[in-house]
Amino acid sequence: MSIRFAIVGCGRISERHAQHISNVGELVAVCDIVREKAEGLAEKYGAKAYTDLDEMLRYEKEVEVVAICSPNGLHAAQTIAALQAEKHVICEKPMAINPYDCGEMIKAAERANRRLFVVKQNRFNPPVAAVKELIDAGKLGQIYSVHLSCYWNRHNAYYANSWKGTKALDGGTLYTQFSHFIDLLYWMFGDVKEVTAYTANYHHQGIIEFEDTGVVNLRFYNGTLGSVHYTVNSYQKNMEGSLTIFGEKGTVKIGGQYLNELEYQQIEGIEIKDLPPGNPPNQYGNYVGSMSNHDHVYANLVQVLTNNGIIATNGFEGLKTVEIIDKIYTAAKPL
């Protein structure tokens, strides 16, 4: 019997989830406080529409997995409610917008003996996966330093009449736009010990309640030095999402607009070649997101729930991303 799913939050990203759910299981219920959104998604996939999460969890007893696709600031409460209803949960990024909430989500999953999956699709980008494999095998030797560039565009219309840009539901540019990128720093190089940072809101004053630009210096526990330059002020369109790595035995740059291209490599005795083509980015009308790897995310979920597979990104790893972002914002000096 196929896995039965429900979706909470019927905005843009929910369509991506619904599409891949239909490939691996059955979407039986959707929920959104805006009835028209819930009914529109439900009609397309033959699901039942709800406007109240508690009601959906109460009546949809056969749902096994709940996908949380709502605004960032709602992730924690909705995830905990679904776990307490004894559902597995797959939560969109960011897991939450503060470390405390992440911890409560993890505890709720443990108490319910249910799985908590966190969407971190950049891990599946072919050049990212290839470089991660080399790092884990020690082929780059000691990692000396790394630099993460996040140069995207989010125009004022993106934030208009939306929860995006609010401190309470969005949380900050690093949470909504670049948490996938911060996740890769933890996944590839480990935890961060020290942070210094400057942030500023240059182009979105009166539009968003936080920064649109940041420059960050990092020191990892393993001694690696790192830097991050991020902005949503790239003129008119996304420019680049890249990660450059300087190691004892090699230098690598993964680039493109969303870490989708292997732009440079010089590695002792090794050449990365014949990478499979990656998926296109998520398209959201007037703006573009990260590479669309939700197919891999859902394939992993099915493997974990039906075949004792190893979870790709668990709640602890989702927490670490949020902790690093929280460290950056705590250390940041606004200009």
Rank of each mutant, 00 (worst) to 15 (best):
V30G: 06
V30C: 10
V30P: 04
C31M: 13
C31L: 10
D32N: 00
I33F: 00
I33G: 00
V34M: 10
E36S: 14
E36Q: 11
E36P: 06
E36N: 05
K37A: 08
K37Q: 12
A38C: 11
G40V: 05
A42F: 04
K44L: 14
K44C: 08
Y45S: 03
Y45H: 15
Y45L: 11
Y45R: 01
G46A: 13
A47C: 06
A47M: 02
A47T: 05
K48I: 13
K48A: 03
A49C: 05
A49G: 03
Y50L: 03
Y50K: 05
Y50N: 04
D52H: 11
D52V: 14
D54Q: 13
D54I: 05
E55V: 10
E55W: 00
M56H: 08
M56R: 06
Y59D: 11
Y59A: 11
E60R: 06
E60N: 07
K61C: 00
E64R: 13
E64D: 09
V65Y: 04
V66Q: 01
A67T: 10
A67R: 00
I68Y: 09
I68N: 03
I68M: 07
S70T: 15
S70L: 11
P71Q: 08
G73S: 09
L74F: 07
L74M: 14
L74N: 01
H75I: 12
H75N: 14
H75E: 13
A76K: 01
A76F: 06
Q78H: 15
Q78G: 08
Q78S: 08
T79Y: 09
T79N: 09
